[in-house]
């Protein structure tokens, strides 16, 4: 049986997803307006800026940093034979271009992919427009990357 179909593997995925959704709600990062109030640096001089998102990132990074260090001392995760670590480490055009496009989309909406999906718990109006578009965009992105990889000259 494939490792990723075992009960303990799927329960781990469920636990992680549930904790993630809880964290997004507790921090109120599910609220696009709260995210935009962080991204709105023009509000810094007037005192209307909301630094909350920085604390969310800081808290998340702290725990994950410790987990990564701990993971280095064991050489494999509990329920799989290896850590699925991205090995590719070149700064290339897709990375930069992708980050630019995502930055524009995120700044326009205040929604990144985690909150986009957890907003299904609240079903605000127009959510489906964003989700369908993100779905189509992800598909197009997959196709583009497949082409890039196929035509890429091996380094």
């Amino acid at each position: 049986m494939k490792v990723s179909l075992r009960t303990q593997y799927l329960l781990t995925a469920a636990l992680s997803g549930a904790l993630f959704g809880t964290g997004l709600y507790v921090s109120q990062m599910v609220d696009p307006l709260k995210v935009l109030r962080f991204l709105d640096f023009t509000a810094i001089p007037t005192g209307g800026w909301d630094p909350s998102l920085a604390l969310v990132m800081g808290g998340g990074l702290l725990v994950m940093f410790i987990a990564v260090q701990y993971g280095k001392r064991r050489n494999k995760p509990l329920f799989d034979s290896t850590f699925h670590q991205p090995e590719y480490n070149r700064i290339d055009a897709p990375l930069v271009g992708g980050a630019v496009l995502f930055g524009i989309g995120w700044g326009m909406s205040g929604i990144c992919p985690g909150p986009a999906i957890s907003l299904l718990a609240f079903l605000p109006s127009n959510l489906w427009v964003f989700l369908v578009a993100m779905f189509v965009g992800s598909y197009l992105g997959n196709m583009m990357m497949r082409r890039v990889r196929r035509t890429a000259v091996p380094a």
């Binding site: 808290g59 994950m64 987990a67």
Partner: peptide
């Protein structure tokens, strides 16, 4: 709430990483 939520998100990431290596 921001810090607590962030710690929970970090914990979620840690569980998936140390459990499934994902």
């Amino acid at each position: 709430p921001a810090l607590v939520g962030g710690l929970l998100i970090g914990l979620a990431s840690a569980v998936l990483w140390l459990g499934n290596g994902r």
